[in-house]
Each structure stands twice: as C-alpha cells, then as structure tokens.
C-alpha cells in the first residue's frame, strides 16, 4: 500500500483570466502505515494537493499512484475526511458509517456489524441512532473518521479535519486520531496549517512554500508517541519548521 506522488503540478485560470500556478512539481513517496502531515501557510495549495491525491481534482502535470495504480478519480481505496462537516444529515450516525458499504453492495447484517465496529473504535458506541445535528463538532468528525475507515481504504486523507474545533477539543481529537491510527495502521496524509498539530502527529512533515506550492523540505520526526507537546524534541522541531515556513514566505 504505497502512495506515490509524481511531479504533480496544478495550474488554473484565476478570476482575472491570468493562469495561476497552485502547485509546482510535487513529488512524494509515502510508505505503508506512515503518518504524514502536509504543512503550509494558507493558500499554498495543500488542500489542492490532497484533493488531487483523492482524485477529486486532476493535476495539470504528473500523477498519483496507489500500489502502482494511477488514480484517475475518487475511489474508496482513498478515504477522505473533509474540513467542513460532510455527514449526511438525513442519515443516522450508524447509516452514515455504513454508507460506503451500502454503495459496495455489502449485505445488511454485515454492514451493520462493520459499522458498529468502527463506531466503537471512535468511541461513539452509544450514538448509533443519533442524527448528525444532535452531535458536537468533534463527535461529527469522529463519525466522519469512522465512515472513511469502514470501507477499509488503503490511505486516509484528512483535510484540516479539526480546523473548526476549539483548542481543547482539537487536542483531544489529535490524541484520539493517533490511537485510532495505532490500532488500524493506515497510511495517513494529514493536511494542516498548524505547526503544533503537525509536530504532535507526524512521522514526517512535508513543508510547502507559499504559492506556487513547492516542497520546501520534508522533516522526519522520530520522537516516540505519545509525545509531550512541551518536550525539548517537539520544541526544537517546532522552531525549525516555523523557520522553514517563514523563509518559504520570504518574510522574517
């Protein structure tokens, strides 16, 4: 289950008719089971990169391979968790989670069992028959995680999934996503603009420059988990990464 991004560039026509280069020559290899954060200032094209990997957008140049197979559109092999709430509000929590299984034609009893399993995994066992509007933001994102995992994707893509949450919930969700990741050992690509978040979560941090988004550097971080956000290792990496971002923006 290896994810390969090969020379991906994205150009589009902006509002004033001029071509805008959002991404330039992005190449990246992610081995199975790794937790990778894509970090960059807003507008650097990190969400675009994730959407290209997900098959939701086509790159202008380059390609994305999953296990040697080119991605040419959205596929359940690449699960995605969106920043804004993407749950179907007319479906109960359990039916949201089993949506992908339903599409694949899985038997009713089997998909109920699988959905329950993932519901328990994200710690919402008691909310099977609740509707999304009855849940808090953090709970909704947990359901979204369960829904994305239920179809057993090779790679899980997360687009600033905790961006809309308050700081406390955000920290709790970060710990929880690591627990889930340790249990499932999925390959994770996690987009964020928060250096803190990336340092807490990632095996590797891909730092992008501001527009056009290029890879500034890939920082490897081997500090064992659970990490202490205030440890020397975390602080040093945070300083280093912040430095990279400032340089990338041409500022400070």
């Amino acid at each position: 289950m290896k994810l390969v991004v090969e020379g991906v560039s994205k150009e589009y026509v902006g509002n004033n008719g001029e071509p805008v280069v959002a991404l330039k020559g992005i190449s990246l290899e992610v081995p199975e089971g790794e937790f990778v954060c894509i970090l960059g200032p807003s507008g650097c094209g990190k969400t675009t990169l994730l959407r290209i990997i997900a098959g939701l957008e086509r790159p202008t140049e380059g390609r994305v391979l999953v296990d040697g197979e080119e991605v040419d559109g959205p596929t359940p092999r690449l699960g995605m968790i969106f920043q804004d709430y993407s749950l179907f509000p007319w479906r109960r929590v359990i039916d949201n989670i089993s949506f992908g299984l339903e599409l694949a034609g899985v038997e009713k009893a089997d998909r109920a069992a699988t959905a329950r399993e993932y519901l328990d995994l994200v710690g919402l066992g008691g909310f099977a028959s609740a509707y999304p509007y009855e849940l808090s933001g953090g709970m909704r994102q947990r359901v979204a995680v369960a829904r994305a995992l239920a179809t057993n994707p090779a790679v899980v893509l997360m687009d600033e999934p905790f961006g809309a949450l308050d700081a406390q919930t955000r920290n709790a969700m970060q710990r929880e996503i690591l627990e889930i990741w340790e249990k499932t050992r999925k390959t994770v690509l996690f987009v964020t603009h928060s250096v803190d978040e990336a340092v807490f979560l990632a095996d590797r941090i891909v730092v992008l420059t501001a527009r056009p988004g290029r890879i500034r550097e890939v920082a490897t971080f081997s500090e064992p988990r659970p990490r202490n956000r205030t440890s020397d290792g975390c602080a040093a990496l945070r300083r280093y990464v912040l430095g990279l971002i400032d340089e990338g923006q041409g500022g400070a």
Binding site: A54, G55, L56, G73, P74, T75, P76, L78, G79, M80, F82, D84, Y85, S86, L87, F88, W90, F99, G100, E102, L103, A104, A144, R147, A148, T151
Partner: peptide, 24 residues
C-alpha cells in the same frame, strides 16, 4: 462536500443521484 464525500466512498453517478442529491 456531501457529493464529494459520497464520491470518495465509491458512489457512481446514479448512486449520487438516488442516495445523496435526491435525499439532500
């Protein structure tokens, strides 16, 4: 986002129409 979420979960056009767009 509903449509894109459904697509990443494997929905084809007909499934999108019946299971996402119509109920939405």
């Amino acid at each position: 986002t509903w449509i894109e979420a459904a697509m990443t979960l494997g929905a084809r056009e007909r499934q999108l129409l019946v299971r996402v767009i119509l109920p939405g």
